[in-house]
Design a protein around this nucleic acid. Structure first.
Lengths: 134, 134
DNA sequence: GCCCAATTGCTAAATTTTTAGCATCTCAAG
DNA sequence: CTTGAGATGCTAAAAATTTAGCAATTGGGC
């Protein structure tokens, strides 16, 4: 299982994996529609077939049509992507990353979202305090 | 300036851009050493030259040796990477992303880092409250 | 100046990726 | 059953990427 090898995906492979993680399950047509500068249908199928062969993608036959999904669990893929972001832009610092993330697009959070963030911080703080006691 | 086109980078191009953003400025040799499964020196130079031509990378001559840097400002590249992460894994939700980010690798934050997070949340909350009044 | 390691400028071959196309099959509607 | 749209299985050519190699240059040490 090559889940540590997302960095070795080619241009189109990476675009397709992103789409599959975003949508969870897709037909080849849906993948085609979501691709930037989409090639033809058979080109998309050939690309997906290649990802199936490399074990990045699995498929199931639904009513005569294949539905494709990522082969690597989403939380693993998330972790890989997050670690890459931390290393590339934030020298590994989660705090810097959170700062940047919350500033992106100057989009405001709702009161409920802020509450949730506060709960998250409280959870993390609790875990830190528990460790500090040990 | 193709800063909206990171998604179109090829495998090696992407690997090199990551290295340049991580280290800010690099010689070709340093890029070579940082690359996974590195090719030869001249292969690395040819790849970088290609990124220079595509205007993703700029260089300066320092003592007869070229030092390379990303052409797109770091904060722009950060935003692009963060937005991709949000869209791919978190349906755009910053809160979900922050949760995942803080959980990555079960690594604990220091008390100082937690304070800083709290300040960040307070800042975001203040901005939200200011907006709510308008 | 000489020497040598390291570098640049440039090229093109090797390899991989991307793309489209064709024959055949499937399924649903009439 | 027929028909036609949409799909699959498969192929290989076109295009892009990756790679290495050579000649010439550069800079530093002796």
């Amino acid at each position: 299982m090559p889940h540590s090898q997302f960095a070795n995906l080619s241009r189109r492979e990476r675009q397709i994996m992103d789409i599959l993680y975003e949508k969870s399950t897709c037909s080849a047509q849906e993948v085609q529609q979501a691709l930037p500068n989409p090639p033809g249908y058979s080109a998309v199928r050939a690309l997906i077939a290649r990802l199936v062969e490399k074990k990045f993608v699995v498929f199931r036959n639904e009513g005569g049509r294949y539905m494709y999904s990522p082969a690597v669990a989403e939380d693993q893929a998330q972790n890989t992507a997050i670690n890459r972001l931390l290393r590339t832009f934030f020298k590994g610092s989660k705090v810097k990353a959170v700062n940047a993330l919350l500033d992106v697009d100057s989009e405001s959070l709702s009161a409920r979202e802020i509450e949730e963030l506060e709960r998250t911080i409280a959870r993390v703080k609790q875990a830190q305090e528990t460790r500090a006691e040990e």
